[in-house]
Design a protein around this nucleic acid. Structure first.
Lengths: 356, 356
DNA sequence: ACGCACTCCGTAAACGTTTACGATACTATG
DNA sequence: CATAGTATCGTAAACGTTTACGGAGTGCGT
């Protein structure tokens, strides 16, 4: 006899079962949508669970069925990332969740501490079986994490492409496309000496961008000059530094492509200091459109994309590589480059007439 | 006899035990630093665990001892947050982790999906017992989450103070101090009509800031004018809107204090459009120093603080309210306002001579 | 009346760990 | 030598679920 007590916090499935005068097995089956349970009792169970606020204990569940219903997103909160990502991760996360939530999967973010090796951190998380699948980001040129996850047989996908030989799912921004588009545009405006920036750290996207740049130049029959590839931190300060190095060159480039939107701020400042005006004396093309670079005068030419949709794509790619969800997202191609769209500004809107 | 096989992934403590010819109880005790185990065998166990890469399964462990060794940080990735937080959370997270890691606690971030009610989301996470303790942020004026966590007897702390009657641990920026300092400074420069911005959403910090503003005015014997408290979104666009509204006022203020650094960008732009120059025609004081507002000309007067250290403080406050760690961090005061330091710029560096 | 298929539900065994308890061997003490 | 105490370890019972298995009841055809 239920005494209609106030809805106190549930202790476990056992209590819920005896509240209903049903065996715990039936309760479990009812909650999990198993077929062999009367539709009538299922309703009763669901109602009681709702009323008493019962939710299955995650530890018990995952211990039994070996699955956590959790997807982990590992992020490195290195100083550089924190200062420059411009909420990159939070935006992508929104897209990821919109897919995962459809399957009752919860996304958790796993921030690797600054003072811990990302590999060791991931190893710990994997061994603890804290998540069913992983998304990793900021992949390095040689990244042991791929092997780690593969050996542990944990499905994973990377935010950012792989350059090592290992074949695995990823989604990444189309650096190639950006480099091509930017260079096409600059060349059409008469530029021949075009510099680019590339990150100081050993991160994949730097190589990809530089490679796209090299090939685009080749396509236009322009010689590749290593002096024009400038390594700098991906920050406002880095942009300042890039400008500084450009000004030091004896044979100055007439255009520069930045790999981080933020850099434009510092670059503008340094250029202004030297009385060189972007869009008049030098052409500047930024990478990703960002709210914080919108104020720049003259307006920065850059590229726009939906990071939310990139997240959606990445989530689907990941699920398609998980046996339990493969039939829902039967992707054949699990490696995607995500397009960006040119947003023309004024920072490169001038034609080169004579040399120099 | 161990055959010196390759270190394959461990199946469980059982395998590790029979590898060592020891009972699983002893292995567990050895790994967990229990006293009643021979120092010699402990070394053997630790060595074998290291070599075979054994890490205790989290589900089994938490099921048994009812603890997860995980601290959850709930964040709402609402559009507004994403665009404006300027990596606020990632920075605070660094501070949090530096404390937690000392106690083998892992921090995970729980991003509440946009389309889910934060209360329901937290309820789910709590019921699943995914973490031992919680940190919540963006607390509302009336926030049911406090009661939820209290009833569930889950230790928690808030990033951002509480305004409801409930007594609970929090750490927050010193909005009062900022309002006081800003107004003192402005009044010293001769200003009497001073406007402030406050968030459009029902978030606590808005009320705190407005209240500090009101009291500071009172202290200087300046009448409070509700028309000078302008609600706007905490973004660049919001700043533009604030400027717009200020310009519309018949009796224009001579100074304005912004609650988000980003707003300064939009405000500057709108002011410039109206040929009103910050630092000459109107005094502008920003709130938190931010890399992305550094470029502003004239330089924005604002306030600096270490979000990392705020995270450290918050972590210690949380731990002090957890029975297991209380003896390590015996805090008496679990509600802290975190100081900010004035960074004088040019945006308010003029003295008012005559009225208007 | 009998067997069979089907629906629904209870029972109990897992999942991997920690830990209370008791057992054993050894040492010190009387 | 008997006894108590100590150090070390093995045993088994939990923790809260899910799920394979089997049993009870029902309906139906022969």
């Amino acid at each position: 006899m239920a005494h209609g007590g106030t809805p106190r916090p549930m202790k476990g499935i056992r209590q819920l079962a005896e509240h209903l005068d049903i065996s715990i097995g039936t309760v479990s089956r009812a909650l999990n949508g198993k077929p062999d349970v009367n539709e009538e009792t299922r309703k009763r169970v669901l109602a009681a669970a709702e009323q008493l606020g019962y939710v299955a204990n995650q530890s018990g569940r995952s211990l039994r069925q070996g699955t956590t219903n959790v997807i982990g997103l590992m992020i490195q909160s290195s100083k550089e990332t924190v200062e420059n990502s411009d909420n990159f991760f939070l935006t992508v996360t929104g897209g990821l969740q919109s897919v995962f939530s459809r399957h009752n999967l919860d996304l958790i973010m796993l921030p690797c501490p600054n003072d811990e090796d990302p590999y060791e951190y991931l190893k710990r998380m994997v061994a603890r079986r804290i998540a069913d699948a992983m998304i990793i980001s900021e992949t390095q040129r040689v990244d042991k994490r791929f092997d780690l996850l593969a050996k542990a047989k944990i499905p994973f996908a990377a935010l950012g492409r792989s350059l090592s030989g290992t074949q695995h799912p990823w989604a990444d921004l189309d650096f190639d496309g950006v480099a091509n588009c930017a260079i096409d545009r600059l060349v059409a405006h008469g530029h021949r000496r075009i510099a680019i920036s590339t990150p100081a750290s050993d991160i994949n996207l730097g190589f990809v961008f530089a490679e796209g740049y090299r090939r685009a130049l080749e396509r236009h029959g322009i010689a590749y000059d290593p002096a024009l590839v400038i390594r700098a931190k991906s920050s406002e300060q880095g942009g300042y530094q890039v400008a500084d190095e450009l000004l030091r060159l004896e044979d100055r480039p007439t255009a520069v492509i930045l790999i981080y939107e933020l850099m434009a701020i510092g670059l503008y400042r340094r250029m202004m200091e030297a009385d060189i005006i972007p869009g008049r004396d030098i052409a500047v093309v930024g990478f990703r459109e960002a709210p914080r670079a919108k104020f720049l005068q003259p307006a920065l030419t850059c590229f726009r994309t939906s990071l939310h949709d990139l997240g959606v794509e990445l989530a689907e790619i990941l699920l398609s590589s998980m046996p339990a969800y493969n039939h829902i997202y039967p992707k054949t191609n699990r490696q995607t480059t995500w397009p960006l769209e040119l947003v023309p500004g004024e920072s490169d809107a001038f034609h080169l007439t004579a040399a120099k």
